[in-house]
């Protein structure tokens, strides 16, 4: 502790020596210049590494490789039109929407119920809660790799099914089960994380409200429905949107577990973009697909701001 403090003090003293005097001299130095100096590294990196690639994708999605003339030619929205006429893309879009419609309510419902469970008085609630949160430390690729062994025909998943007296399932190799298997894996990863936000929301609900409801003779379910749920709608709205956006961007489990298959049944948009760009080598259509994905997520976020604003005024 003490050596770091001394270096701190020394650095600070040097800082004062180096900067204080010039600063006094340029007391009138324009604030914009000072701010620009502080902002430049982060601002430039955001412009070049976040906004520029999006702009490039938008630009290139309007062009197409021309073999006749060499180079690229402007084609307007033709790449987009082609995409919407492409069976593989339409399938990916459909799979992604179906996936979102199922996985988001499932995860948020589970996260909410778990948040309610783990805010009740019970033995060891904090310990059990942290076990549910534990998977957020696991990198997505590691989760996918571990679950790839669980889902093997001779893996842990089928051992549990046989313990329950159920027949062995194919999981990842079945077109009917591949997407559901990925949903289970993602819920194992994500539910604990979203639960944290909802627990914070539930802890903010004043206990007097529950006491008042008890005096009015409300049952536990009634209290959950009429007191807890309305009062955590702000964190709920945030979780709904953040979860939806993150689930639009699922890539590692698909790439590691199913490669989008069997027969396109787990081909989520991010993976479709990846194969379009690198396996099919159709970069301009891949860029158009990137733009579609970015717009999709921006629309969801815009809805969030709407939701939060209206719940503020309500």
């Amino acid at each position: 502790m003490s050596p770091s403090q001394t270096t701190d003090r020394r650095a600070a003293a040097e800082g004062r020596a180096a900067f204080a005097r010039p600063a006094r001299r340029r007391r009138q130095a324009p604030l914009v210049a000072v701010a620009a100096a502080f902002l430049a590294p982060a601002f430039i990196s955001l412009l070049v590494l976040r906004i520029a690639p999006a702009a490039v994708a938008l630009w290139e999605s309007l062009y197409r490789q021309s073999f006749l003339r060499g180079g690229t030619v402007f084609v307007g929205v033709e790449n987009y039109a082609d995409l919407f006429g492409n069976a593989d893309f339409n399938n990916a879009l459909l799979v992604t929407l179906l996936f979102s419609l199922v996985v988001n309510p499932l995860q948020i419902g589970a996260a909410f119920l778990l948040a309610v469970l783990y805010t009740r008085k019970a033995a060891g609630a904090k310990i059990w809660r942290s076990l549910v949160v534990l998977p957020i430390a696991v990198p997505p690729a590691v989760s996918a790799v571990v679950w790839s062994v669980i889902y093997r025909p001779d893996g842990l998943g089928n051992s549990f099914l046989s313990l329950l007296g159920l027949p062995a399932q194919p999981f990842l190799t079945s077109p009917q089960q591949s997407l559901a298997s990925i949903m289970v894996l993602l819920s194992w990863i994500g539910v604990g994380y979203w639960m944290l936000f909802l627990i914070a929301g539930i802890n903010d609900v004043p206990t007097e409200l529950y006491e008042a409801a008890s005096i009015d003779g409300a049952s536990a379910w009634r209290k959950l429905w009429s007191v807890t749920l309305p009062l955590v709608r702000r964190p709920l709205a945030f979780v709904l949107v953040a979860d939806t956006v993150s689930n639009f961007l699922i890539f590692a489990p698909v790439q590691i577990l199913t490669k989008g298959g069997p027969s396109g049944s787990s081909n989520l948009l991010m993976y479709d973009i990846y194969t379009r760009a690198y396996t099919l080598g159709d970069l301009s259509k891949a860029q158009a697909e990137v733009i579609i994905l970015v717009l999709l997520t921006l629309v969801i976020v815009a809805v969030q701001f709407r939701l939060l604003r209206s719940s503020d005024t309500a």
Partner: peptide, 21 residues
Amino acid sequence: IVVVVSFLIPFDAIAIPLANL
């Protein structure tokens, strides 16, 4: 506003155009 927009654009989605750059 630029800062907010930059984190609303999901990084994974623009990873492919950025990788080309």
